[in-house]
């Protein structure tokens, strides 16, 4: 009886559930991440990304996925700065399917997110919001699942929300010299894992610190800096 109760409250999962429709994956196009997440991002649902501070590569983590555009909308809600169309286009994102929404208050942002998901014409949704309550997260998770959409919730805290939100995954990101270090706090259908290093050097060589580059490939990084015409104080 006790086990049934636990199952009802979704506190335990069975290995056979892994093959169910809830656990289909789509590749993140980062081999190490795919290996850690048993195939990649969830096909549908809500994923929380705690990125600490902007600019560490939190969007680059998603760009390869978003570039595999289908013919549905990708909705961006309340990005912390202007979304640079040039950069999105460079990364292969279809701007004709990109919708940018700016809301005055958090309530409207959540409303827009829910409407976009429920419309059925949105494949990916990226929402910047400071916090979600459990009922809000539940509603968005249900909307995303029911409409074949994957939603990312980004917030600039270093650690993901402590409360046990009913969502598909909770990850926190930290910068590394060549990419990101992901901590997987929760991932539906598998045990929490410690860490995963995502190497972005291959995709963005110019944005990684060239520590492991052989020096004969060009000017040394130190000389690169030294060549800058800073005026001495």
């Amino acid at each position: 009886m006790a086990l049934l109760q636990l199952e009802k409250e979704r506190l335990v999962w069975r290995a056979r559930q892994l093959t169910g429709p809830d656990h289909r994956r789509q590749s993140s196009f980062y081999p190490t991440l795919d290996a850690h997440l048993q195939g990649g991002w969830p096909q549908t649902g809500l994923v929380e990304l705690a990125y600490g501070s902007a600019g560490i590569g939190e969007l680059r983590l998603l760009f390869p996925l978003l570039a595999q555009a289908e013919s549905r909308l990708q909705v961006w809600i309340n990005p912390p700065a202007e979304l640079n169309g040039q950069a999105l286009a460079q990364h292969g994102i279809d701007l004709s399917q990109t919708l940018l929404i700016r809301c005055q208050n958090p309530q409207q942002a959540l409303w827009s997110a829910e409407q976009s998901l429920n419309s059925g014409c949105c494949s990916h949704l990226i929402l910047w919001a400071p916090g979600l309550t459990a009922p809000q997260a539940k509603r968005l998770q249900v909307s995303a699942k029911g409409n074949q959409a994957l939603m990312f919730w980004l917030h600039p805290q270093a650690e993901p929300s402590t409360s046990a939100l009913p969502i598909s995954a909770r990850l926190s990101l930290a910068p590394l010299a060549t990419g990101l270090r992901l901590k997987i706090h929760k991932y539906q259908g598998q045990w929490p894992q410690s860490f995963c290093q995502v190497d972005m050097h291959e995709l963005w060589p110019s944005l990684a610190i060239p520590t492991h580059l052989p020096t004969h490939h060009g000017p040394a990084p130190s000389s690169n800096i030294a060549a800058l015409p800073f005026k001495p104080r």
């Binding site: 169309g85 701007l95 419309s119 409409n147």
Partner: peptide, 29 residues
């Protein structure tokens, strides 16, 4: 297979009417 309850245009109209025209935008190069 996806239900397809609204078209993109209908979604945009709905968002625009609630949030105002300036709140829903697309990025052009």
């Amino acid at each position: 297979p996806l239900g397809g309850k609204l078209t993109a245009g209908q979604l945009i109209s709905r968002l625009q009417n609630k949030l105002g025209d300036h709140a829903v935008q697309q990025v052009y190069l």
